[in-house]
Amino acid sequence: TTLTVNTQTYTFTSEEEAREFARRYGAKTIRKTNGTWEVHG
């Protein structure tokens, strides 16, 4: 199964959650914005 996250942004309140998600789905960018963490595919 392949998950494609081209134009979607996922927002997390903790860096740990964001990094775990990025690691699991191979997202390329993690960015902190206004106190939340954004993961970009």
Results as ranks from 00 to 15, higher is better:
residue 1 T to L: 12
residue 1 T to I: 10
residue 1 T to A: 12
residue 1 T to F: 09
residue 1 T to Y: 05
residue 1 T to V: 09
residue 1 T to C: 15
residue 2 T to D: 13
residue 2 T to F: 05
residue 2 T to G: 14
residue 2 T to A: 11
residue 2 T to N: 13
residue 2 T to C: 15
residue 2 T to K: 12
residue 2 T to V: 09
residue 3 L to C: 15
residue 3 L to K: 14
residue 3 L to N: 14
residue 3 L to I: 14
residue 3 L to R: 13
residue 3 L to A: 13
residue 3 L to F: 05
residue 4 T to I: 13
residue 4 T to A: 12
residue 4 T to N: 14
residue 4 T to R: 08
residue 4 T to M: 08
residue 5 V to E: 12
residue 5 V to Q: 13
residue 5 V to G: 13
residue 5 V to K: 12
residue 5 V to P: 13
residue 6 N to W: 06
residue 6 N to Q: 09
residue 6 N to D: 13
residue 6 N to F: 07
residue 6 N to P: 13
residue 6 N to S: 10
residue 6 N to E: 13
residue 7 T to M: 11
residue 7 T to K: 07
residue 7 T to H: 14
residue 7 T to P: 08
residue 7 T to W: 12
residue 7 T to N: 11
residue 7 T to E: 12
residue 7 T to I: 12
residue 7 T to S: 10
residue 7 T to R: 05
residue 8 Q to P: 11
residue 8 Q to F: 09
residue 8 Q to Y: 10
residue 8 Q to A: 10
residue 8 Q to C: 15
residue 8 Q to H: 14
residue 8 Q to S: 09
residue 8 Q to V: 14
residue 9 T to Y: 13
residue 9 T to R: 09
residue 9 T to N: 08
residue 9 T to M: 11
residue 9 T to H: 10
residue 9 T to F: 13
residue 9 T to P: 09
residue 10 Y to H: 10
residue 10 Y to S: 03
residue 10 Y to L: 06
residue 10 Y to R: 06
residue 10 Y to Q: 05
residue 11 T to N: 06
residue 11 T to H: 08
residue 11 T to F: 12
residue 11 T to M: 07
residue 11 T to W: 10
residue 12 F to P: 00
residue 12 F to Y: 00
residue 12 F to H: 00
residue 12 F to Q: 00
residue 12 F to D: 00
residue 13 T to Y: 11
residue 13 T to R: 05
residue 13 T to N: 09
residue 13 T to P: 06
residue 13 T to L: 09
residue 13 T to D: 12
residue 13 T to G: 07
residue 14 S to N: 10
residue 14 S to Q: 03
residue 14 S to F: 02
residue 14 S to W: 01
residue 15 E to Q: 04
residue 15 E to I: 05
residue 15 E to V: 05
residue 15 E to Y: 14
residue 15 E to G: 02
residue 15 E to W: 11
residue 15 E to H: 03
residue 15 E to C: 09
residue 15 E to A: 05
residue 16 E to S: 08
residue 16 E to A: 11
residue 16 E to Y: 07
residue 16 E to R: 07
residue 16 E to W: 09
residue 16 E to M: 07
residue 16 E to P: 03
residue 16 E to I: 07
residue 17 E to S: 05
residue 17 E to P: 00
residue 17 E to H: 03
residue 17 E to N: 03
residue 18 A to D: 00
residue 18 A to N: 00
residue 18 A to S: 00
residue 18 A to W: 01
residue 18 A to V: 00
residue 18 A to K: 00
residue 19 R to Y: 10
residue 19 R to N: 10
residue 19 R to H: 06
residue 19 R to W: 11
residue 19 R to K: 09
residue 19 R to V: 09
residue 20 E to Y: 03
residue 20 E to D: 09
residue 20 E to W: 05
residue 20 E to K: 06
residue 20 E to G: 02
residue 21 F to R: 01
residue 21 F to E: 01
residue 21 F to K: 01
residue 22 A to W: 03
residue 22 A to L: 05
residue 22 A to Y: 04
residue 23 R to I: 07
residue 23 R to D: 13
residue 23 R to T: 08
residue 23 R to Q: 11
residue 23 R to K: 13
residue 23 R to L: 08
residue 23 R to Y: 06
residue 23 R to S: 09
residue 24 R to N: 07
residue 24 R to C: 10
residue 24 R to T: 06
residue 24 R to V: 08
residue 25 Y to M: 14
residue 25 Y to N: 09
residue 25 Y to A: 07
residue 25 Y to W: 09
residue 25 Y to G: 02
residue 25 Y to H: 14
residue 25 Y to R: 06
residue 25 Y to Q: 06
residue 26 G to Q: 05
residue 26 G to S: 04
residue 26 G to H: 10
residue 26 G to T: 02
residue 26 G to P: 03
residue 26 G to R: 05
residue 26 G to D: 04
residue 26 G to W: 03
residue 26 G to M: 04
residue 27 A to D: 04
residue 27 A to Q: 06
residue 27 A to H: 13
residue 27 A to E: 04
residue 27 A to M: 15
residue 27 A to I: 14
residue 27 A to L: 15
residue 28 K to V: 15
residue 28 K to P: 08
residue 28 K to D: 10
residue 29 T to N: 06
residue 29 T to Q: 07
residue 29 T to K: 05
residue 29 T to I: 15
residue 30 I to K: 02
residue 30 I to A: 03
residue 30 I to W: 02
residue 31 R to E: 08
residue 31 R to L: 11
residue 31 R to D: 05
residue 31 R to N: 07
residue 31 R to P: 05
residue 31 R to Y: 10
residue 31 R to G: 04
residue 31 R to A: 09
residue 31 R to Q: 11
residue 32 K to G: 08
residue 32 K to R: 08
residue 32 K to I: 08
residue 32 K to M: 12
residue 32 K to H: 10
residue 32 K to L: 13
residue 33 T to L: 11
residue 33 T to A: 13
residue 33 T to V: 14
residue 33 T to I: 14
residue 33 T to K: 10
residue 33 T to N: 12
residue 33 T to G: 10
residue 34 N to I: 02
residue 34 N to Y: 01
residue 34 N to R: 02
residue 34 N to S: 04
residue 34 N to G: 06
residue 34 N to L: 04
residue 34 N to F: 02
residue 34 N to T: 03
residue 35 G to E: 06
residue 35 G to S: 04
residue 35 G to K: 03
residue 35 G to I: 01
residue 35 G to P: 01
residue 35 G to R: 01
residue 35 G to Q: 03
residue 35 G to F: 03
residue 36 T to R: 08
residue 36 T to S: 07
residue 36 T to D: 06
residue 36 T to P: 01
residue 36 T to H: 11
residue 36 T to C: 15
residue 37 W to S: 00
residue 37 W to T: 01
residue 37 W to Y: 04
residue 37 W to F: 04
residue 37 W to Q: 00
residue 38 E to V: 11
residue 38 E to T: 06
residue 38 E to F: 05
residue 38 E to W: 04
residue 38 E to K: 02
residue 38 E to N: 01
residue 38 E to R: 01
residue 38 E to S: 03
residue 38 E to Y: 06
residue 39 V to K: 01
residue 39 V to T: 02
residue 39 V to A: 02
residue 40 H to I: 15
residue 40 H to A: 11
residue 40 H to Y: 14
residue 40 H to F: 14
residue 41 G to A: 12
residue 41 G to Y: 13
residue 41 G to N: 08
residue 41 G to E: 06
residue 41 G to C: 15
residue 41 G to R: 07
residue 41 G to P: 11
residue 41 G to L: 15
